[in-house]
C-alpha cells in the first residue's frame, strides 16, 4: 500500500492548481523515492514534470510501486476543501480504485476524508535528455508572470532573447509591438527580485505565450523561477516545490515547451 502525509496541504493544492489547466489526466507514479508525474498537454507542445521527493513528506510509505491515474481538475476540487494550515494524507491500496485524501487541521480538531476515483490512463513515459543548457536565468516568479501577462496583450508569440546584459522579452501583433528587458542585477535590496544570468552564448527563441501563461500559474509555489534555454530545443521553466527561494527544494515542478521556428 501507499500512504504519505504532507504537512502543508496547501503545497499540494498549489501544485495541482498549477497543472490542472494544462493537463487533464495524468499518472502519478509512486515509488520508494517519492511521487512523480510526467504528462504532455493534448497538443504535445508542452510537458509537465513534477517530482516530490520523500524528504518533503512528514511520513511516506510505499510497499510497492503504484500508478495513480488522476483526473487533475477533480483532484484540485477536492484539494480546495483543505484549510490553509491543514495537513494532507494520501492513501491507496496496491490495486485500489480510489485515492483516499484526508485533511487534518493543526490541532487535529477537524478531520475531512475524501475519496477520488482513480482512472486507467494510457500514457507513455518520455525520456527527457539530461542536458546542460546554454542559458539559465533566475528571476522573480511574480515578475515573470507579469511579463508574460503583459506580452499577451500584444500578441501570441514571445521572443525570449538573452545576453550577458539581460534578458529581453519581445512581442509583436496586430496592434503594435513591445518589449521588456530585465538587466542582470545582483545587488538589489530584495534578494527575491534579483535577476541572475548564467550563459555561454547569446540565445534567442520564440514561444507561444498561451503556454508560458499556463506555466506561470505555478508562481504561488516559489518566489523564484529558473528559465533554461539552448538553441533549437524546448525551454524549461522550473519552480522549486517545498523549498525556499532558489535553493534546492525537496521537489520541483518543471515545464517544457517546444519552440516556434521559422518555416
Amino acid at each position: 500500500m501507499f500512504e504519505a502525509t504532507l504537512q502543508k496541504a496547501s503545497t499540494l493544492k498549489k501544485v495541482i492548481e498549477a497543472i490542472k489547466d494544462l493537463v487533464t489526466d495524468g499518472n502519478i507514479e509512486v515509488s520508494e523515492t517519492g511521487m512523480n508525474l510526467q504528462a504532455m498537454d493534448s497538443s504535445h507542445v508542452s510537458l509537465v514534470s513534477l517530482v516530490l521527493h520523500t524528504d518533503m513528506f512528514e511520513h511516506f510509505r510505499c510497499d510497492r510501486n503504484v500508478t495513480l491515474g488522476i483526473n487533475l481538475p477533480n483532484f484540485a476540487k477536492i484539494l480546495k476543501c483543505s484549510g490553509n494550515d491543514d495537513s494532507v494524507t494520501l492513501k491507496a491500496q496496491d490495486d485500489g480504485e480510489n485515492l483516499a485524501i484526508v485533511f487534518e487541521s493543526e490541532g487535529q480538531e477537524r478531520v475531512s476524508e475524501f475519496e477520488l476515483k482513480l482512472m486507467d490512463i494510457d500514457a507513455e513515459s518520455l525520456g527527457i535528455p539530461d542536458q546542460d543548457y546554454n542559458t539559465n536565468v533566475k528571476m522573480s516568479s511574480a515578475e515573470f508572470q507579469r511579463i508574460v501577462r503583459d506580452m499577451t496583450v500584444l500578441g501570441d508569440t514571445c521572443s525570449i532573447g538573452c545576453t550577458k546584459e539581460g534578458v529581453k522579452f519581445s512581442v509583436s501583433g496586430d496592434l503594435g509591438q513591445g518589449n521588456i528587458t530585465l538587466r542582470q542585477t545582483n545587488s538589489v535590496d530584495k534578494e527575491e527580485e534579483a535577476v541572475t544570468i548564467e550563459m555561454d552564448e547569446p540565445v534567442e527563441l520564440n514561444f507561444a505565450l498561451r503556454y508560458l501563461g499556463f506555466f506561470t500559474k505555478a508562481s504561488p509555489l516559489c518566489p523564484r523561477v529558473t528559465i533554461s534555454m539552448s538553441p533549437d530545443v524546448p525551454i524549461v521553466v522550473a519552480y522549486n516545490v517545498g523549498g525556499e527561494k532558489d535553493t534546492e527544494g525537496a521537489g520541483s515542478l518543471s515545464f517544457y515547451l517546444a519552440p516556434k521556428i521559422d518555416e
Binding site: S43, H44, V45, S46, L47, P129, P234, K260, I261, D262
Partner: peptide, 14 residues
C-alpha cells in the same frame, strides 16, 4: 511565418 514544433521531435518514448 513561424511553426510550432511538437515535443515529440525532442523527447522520445522510454
Amino acid at each position: 511565418k513561424q511553426k510550432q514544433k511538437s515535443l515529440d521531435s525532442f523527447f522520445k518514448p522510454k
